[in-house]
Design a protein around this nucleic acid. Structure first.
Lengths: 335, 335
DNA sequence: CCGATTGCAGCAAACGTTTGCCAATTATTG
DNA sequence: CAATAATTGGCAAACGTTTGCTGCAATCGG
């Protein structure tokens, strides 16, 4: 067993220093600020470090420097596919920058959200908050104390990345109206969800502009299982087309319509929001407002890293465009 | 602004100690080992800690104690919906136990897997490895140095949770044979995937037992986009039914079949593995081998925590049963 | 050839905990 | 009531880094 002689203990700076015959501080600098150390010495140190398989102890580093090289990613529900792309996008941007994600599930709770952020404050350098449930006031206060970037939440004083789904909502409604729909319904998400309110407002405004009748049903938790209730409620309104708060809900509604024998899009047209995994292969494939979710996460991370890097003139708010992806769940109004 | 007087600096043990008039060590003990301290003192300390909003600095704690209260979750691709349930299940078990997940994406790379595990060794107490790409030897060696539990990977000396999909493969084949299928194909996953080989073996064995002809196509990366190639390859074999390495691939295949005008299950029956998000609402809904993925993750975490807790007599290997979920993608053989 | 400048490396003090050991106080026992 | 035991709380040394300051030597300009 050749590699069996592995030291049980991890190599530390002290070990590398001893092997090289220099001081610990020199090793530290050689590894973190190479330019502060003579090239020859640096060489020897790197060699010794490699031989010993040295890698820094993150806890000690965090304690010494106050920086952790990790970023908290707050999602309200790890289960929601919307966040998969958030996680993925964040990961993509974080990894190459040498940061590690700290995934936190706030379980749709305002209290938990703030508590986690506070409790683990020393464990991350900054945070990406996707779908905050916090009030504007609390969020703004928090942003004073913690470097953070919010996704899909615009609040004064809080850097954010906003996915312009409301604009897409307008497009979606035009699409429906052009197909002859005159009565439309909005199947709403949680009342505490900020984007939900924005989408509803955009929906109502566009409807007014286009002269169609609207109703709103809900609130519904954004889960597939809630789709049944939402579908039934929409049917009650007599609308010929409906827009759901998000795709998860929309997919659930689609299933319910199928169960009840409501043919989509023949009897009813259905539009979702976000274009999550599954929206393209559900039945019928869902017309939806495609959101650049992974991109939003990447932008959020890069904004955050810039902030952490001490960039003063910072983008305070970025808006990302969406587009309407027309699939098979929308069509001409019946009759 | 009442809460404005917040100290910019986080409260430390020293602050609490000063406020209570006891030593730092006493505060530490009062908070971590309440029984080691007088009830009255403990009371006063807790009160002061609460007032100051004290919460321990995890880095300092890790440094002092060598324990981090966090668990690494290694997945080969955060994008794969299979892992959503892993993440979710792990989260569910970790949270209540006061642990935090450290999500690591190994990007299907053996090197990255081991490197991450080593580099971040000081940042986690133990690891859950879902779908290791490591060789048996490396994995076993690693298990000596790091408390870990593997999911879907049985290797001597490595505690594991195994989802018995191979048993389900047998069932699936019986289901197909009972529908008159005589030629079946396996659309394989990555060659480095351990479960892939197990599934294929189970498939071949069952086919032999049932007297049907098998072929194997692949390997394919387990991505939806790879479904096209897999579907075309299967069509070439002349099989009337096919089992895919996993649902992601199966869903991709379903899409390709639709494109090519192959009617499922009329012309061809299709079975997936895992029953991921989407398997129930794709078109047609997928017959699949349902795996208790979230449960597997929960069991893995609890096994790991037991190990961390110093339990010596440990379950070395747990096997979780699967079952065949019949939906609409399978039916009688054509002709 | 001397004083000023620069580059490089080391010393030592943090950072906020945990924890082994010891001292003081209080409770228990014969 | 003295001796012993148990409980309680404090001291101080880790843990492995980072980083401000200092000192030394080599280099440079004049």
């Amino acid at each position: 067993m050749p590699p069996a002689a592995r030291p049980a203990r991890r190599a530390t700076l002290a070990d590398v220093a001893a092997r090289t015959g220099v001081a610990i501080s020199t090793v530290s600098r050689a590894l973190t600020r190479p330019e502060r150390v003579n090239a020859a010495t640096r060489e020897r140190i790197s060699a010794a470090a490699a031989e010993l398989g040295y890698s820094p102890n993150t806890a000690a580093r965090a304690l010494g420097s106050g920086r952790t090289r990790s970023v908290a990613i707050l999602v309200s529900d790890v289960t929601n596919p919307f966040y998969f792309d958030i996680i993925r996008g964040a990961q993509q941007e974080l990894g190459p920058a040498g940061y590690t994600p700290l995934l936190l599930d706030t379980e749709e709770s305002e209290e938990l959200e703030e508590a986690m952020l506070r409790r683990l404050r020393a464990s991350y350098d900054g945070a990406i908050i996707a779908a905050s449930r916090l009030t504007d006031r609390r969020l703004a206060e928090l942003a004073q104390a913690v470097p953070l970037v919010a996704i899909n939440r615009q609040t004064r004083g809080v850097p954010s990345v906003f996915i312009d789904t409301p604009a897409g909502v307008g497009q979606a409604l035009e699409h429906l109206v052009s197909h002859g729909h005159r009565r439309v319904a909005y199947a709403g998400g949680p009342l505490t969800s900020w984007p939900n309110e924005r989408r509803w407002r955009a929906f109502r405004t566009a409807a007014e502009r286009l002269g169609v009748e609207v109703s709103r049903v809900g609130p519904f938790e954004p889960r597939q299982s809630q789709g049944a209730a939402a579908a039934d409620a929409v049917l009650n309104t007599g609308a010929s087309a409906t827009l759901a708060f998000n795709d998860l809900l929309a997919i659930g509604m689609l299933q319910r319509f199928a169960e009840r024998g409501v043919r989509v899009p023949r009897d009813l047209s259905m539009v979702g929001c976000d274009d999550i995994f599954g929206a393209d292969f559900c039945h019928p494939p869902l017309t939806t407002i495609t959101a650049p979710v992974a991109q939003a996460a990447r932008v959020a991370v890069s904004t955050l890293l810039a902030q952490l890097g001490g960039e003063s003139r910072m983008r305070q708010g970025v808006t990302l465009p969406t587009h309407l992806t027309i699939r098979a769940s929308t069509g001409p109004a019946p009759g």
